[in-house]
């Protein structure tokens, strides 16, 4: 067996190992992402409004601010 033949055989094996490690890394990342999404969904479900609460309007801060600002601008009567 010549020198060149040994090299020729070992090269693909090294590449395969490297590729396997990369795949494992990628899989690990994907699993972490999936677990993260799952946990976030669980948290959302835990704090999500239930029953009648679901039909309520909750966020009005900016609307309130807009109303107050515009009302404060009114200085005189509009028709008189």
């Amino acid at each position: 067996m010549g020198k060149g033949e040994v090299k020729g055989k070992s090269r693909p094996a090294k590449k395969k190992i490297k590729k396997t490690f990369q795949e494992e890394d990628h899989l690990e990342k994907v699993v972490k992402q999936v677990v993260g999404i799952f946990k976030a969904r669980q948290k959302n479900r835990k704090y999500a409004p239930k029953g009648m609460e679901q039909n309520k309007i909750r966020s009005i801060d900016k609307s309130e601010q807009n109303l107050q600002t515009e009302l404060n601008r009114l200085k005189g009567s509009s028709r008189a």
Binding site: A48, E53, S63, L67
Partner: peptide, 22 residues
């Protein structure tokens, strides 16, 4: 005009699971 912020607030409510009926 003023209602633009109100609509944005309602969209935000949906994301938190509120005002789903509407």
């Amino acid at each position: 005009k003023l209602y633009k912020d109100t609509l944005a607030e309602l969209l935000d409510d949906f994301n938190s699971g509120y005002a789903t009926n509407f």
